[in-house]
Design a protein around this nucleic acid. Structure first.
Length: 270
DNA sequence: AAGTTTATTGCCCTTACGTCA
DNA sequence: CTTGACGTAAGGGCAATAAAC
């Protein structure tokens, strides 16, 4: 049921409807700040929350398995392999800071515990990554509810889920770009080859024209004819295809205009 | 109704950390 | 043990969008 653009987007379809800004789940969102309704905390409360967490998680080694069950339980780390980040607050964190209560009191996850000193990074566990991956296969963007639910089930902060999806989309796009480049490269090589072949054919025809006998006896060229009036070389009148060389990706031999494979991807804003 | 402000999110670019050879 | 390459989580900036004013 899901579109298989996935698998790192190795198809050339480039159809990422959900990726389209205009159709992003964002539109489905009630702008009446869901964070406000869900986590109506002020900056101060998030700061408080941060401080509490800092003490709360003090002593938990970053990027290390929680040593004790206590640590695991109290930190609310979902998976034993998951580790704790301590990135200091920023604009996004502030946005998400309201989630503090949800995620640090009830879930116990914090990224702020020693934020003032270090900037350690969380490494998601395999389980977490796998679940995120599965989720990404279903939707490559998340609406706030999905994000919250996923974050909760994974024991992560919504911001982390958001970031993961963002980076995942970027990876998908990068992969797709690589595939596109490869495709264009092959296409270019093919056109170059075809061009070379056609030039050669023109030369041969011109040479033959110099010897009328042969010219009259020859079978019509496979791909080109000479216009009787202007004597220019062109495709055969009844030919539906303009070249014998198969174009890449099994395309028709009439050279199609390259579809804009970057539409909606490279310049989504313009 | 039209224009402005505000809030929210996505994308891009970049940085910094963790891992591995 | 050190180092460089690579993957990736996360920060910051900007644009787009919709709701509120």
């Amino acid at each position: 049921m899901m579109v298989e653009k996935e698998d790192l987007g190795l198809s050339l379809s480039l159809s990422f409807p959900e990726n389209n800004k205009k159709s992003s789940p964002f539109n489905l969102m009630h702008k009446k700040s869901w964070t406000d309704s869900l986590f109506p905390s002020s900056d101060r409360s998030s700061e408080t929350c941060r401080v509490e967490t800092r003490t709360f998680l003090k002593g938990i080694d970053v990027n290390r398995l929680p040593e004790t069950a206590d640590a695991d339980e109290e930190a609310g780390v979902s998976s034993p392999n998951s580790t704790i980040s301590s990135v200091s607050g920023n604009k996004r964190s502030e946005r998400e800071a309201n989630n503090c209560e949800e995620n640090e009191t009830s879930r116990g996850i914090s990224d702020e515990e020693d934020g003032e000193t270090s900037k350690k990074k969380l490494r998601l566990s395999k389980d977490q990554s796998a679940i995120l991956e599965e989720s990404f296969k279903e939707h490559n963007t998340l609406n706030p509810k999905q994000k919250l639910a996923l974050a909760k089930s994974l024991g992560l902060r919504p911001r982390q889920v958001e970031v993961w999806f963002q980076n995942r989309r970027a990876r998908t796009k990068l992969k797709q770009t690589e595939v596109d480049c490869e495709f264009l490269k092959r296409w270019y090589e093919n056109l170059t080859e075809e061009n070379r072949r056609l030039h050669k054919e023109v030369q041969e025809l011109r040479a033959l024209k110099l010897s009328p006998k042969l010219y009259m006896q020859m079978t019509p060229p496979t791909t080109l004819t000479t216009c009787p009036s202007c004597e220019r070389v062109g495709p055969p009148p009844n030919s539906s295809s303009s070249g014998p060389t198969p174009t890449p990706m099994g395309q028709a031999q009439t050279r199609p205009m390259p579809f804009n494979i970057w539409a909606n991807t490279l310049h989504p804003r313009s």
